[in-house]
Design a protein around this nucleic acid. Structure first.
Lengths: 186, 186
DNA sequence: ACATCATTGTACCGTTCGGTACAATTCCCA
DNA sequence: TGGGAATTGTACCGAACGGTACAATGATGT
């Protein structure tokens, strides 16, 4: 191949936004073409597998982003509390305080779940597992760490739903604040 | 009119299930016709407004169901704790311990939000408000009651997302158990 | 039995869907 | 400056979409 696709990251970011806004079914190729400025020719050139490949690429892209920006801080062995705090900060930033929806969470609820069940499952289970590990490092027992981790991730997802329903970012901020207190972070 | 529609409740229940499983966009008339056993003729006879009217009717139906089965117990003035407990029980039953998805929550995330923004908002705000009132009756202050109520509803929604992602009802049960403890119900 | 209205099946409408084919263009490197 | 690959626009495909029209059928009260 002569060169890398012109701006794959930017393209994937736009695709992600379309899928977030409209869901898997609702994200038509017309909508995607309009948002990206690319015709079908280009779209199918970059993603021969069509919409499904686009969605898969977007999920993989998000997965990678979370791995390096959200999960990585949780692996700070020296200062687990600071790591958890940075995770919450990155989460708040990524979801734009609730203005943005979690694409993986949205996919989990609609038809797309069947297509991407495995990816959805690993995305959430890694989030929970990494957080539980960090909590153990703060001195909590295995069971309590697992319980707290699951609760926190669920609280984030629920807060996204409610923030969206109320069209109010304060709902999301309050939820993060509560988790911060519950996890005994500053 | 000669008589009431043959079994409107049963019909709405089936419609609700289709919308829950496939989302608003994903619930095609073909799918709906197949699930209900009704042709387009009948469907458009009962819902002249088409898909949008069907979804609106389903939301209203759910709204009514929650009002009488989930919110009503919260208005028990004598025993607010027992009322909250019954609310959680009804919630667990309705969502089939997480096997079922919240249609309103799912609509809040995808395209349907724009069509039903008002209905979605009132559904959740009534849930939160009624729960907050009940919590005040247990002796909590205004602010704490509101905070706890919002947290609980968010936790339920998040647990539904996670239970669906993990395909594991235990996630939902654990979440309800946590809220039960947090709300100081037996 | 009849008139009446509720209910249904079927054929059809225009539009949009995801996807394909392919020629034209653009870009890069030798 | 040319050759070849990367990229793009356009036309097109069959299928499925939501929705409409309407005649046939079913039930009901008189």
């Amino acid at each position: 191949m002569r060169r890398i696709a012109p701006d794959r990251d930017g393209l994937l970011a736009i695709l992600a936004e379309v899928f977030r806004e409209h869901g898997y079914e609702g994200a038509s190729l017309a909508l995607i073409g309009q948002a990206t400025g690319l015709g079908k020719g280009s779209l199918y050139h970059f993603f021969p597998g069509g919409k499904e490949e686009m969605a898969a690429a977007v999920i993989a892209h998000i997965d990678h982003w979370f791995e390096t920006n959200v999960f990585a801080p949780l692996q700070d062995v020296q200062e687990p509390r600071a790591g958890i705090s940075r995770m919450l900060q990155a989460t708040d930033h990524y979801f734009r305080s609730g203005r943005r929806v979690c694409l993986v969470g949205a996919f989990a609820l609609d038809d797309a779940r069947d297509l991407f069940a495995k990816e959805i499952k690993t995305y959430f289970s890694r989030w929970v597992a990494h957080l539980a590990e960090a909590l153990k490092r703060t001195g909590r027992g295995e069971a309590q760490a697992a319980d707290l981790a699951e609760e926190t991730v669920a609280a984030i997802q629920g807060a996204l739903t409610l923030a969206r329903a109320f069209d109010d970012t304060a709902v999301f901020s309050r939820a993060l604040q509560r988790e911060r207190a519950r996890l005994a972070i500053g």
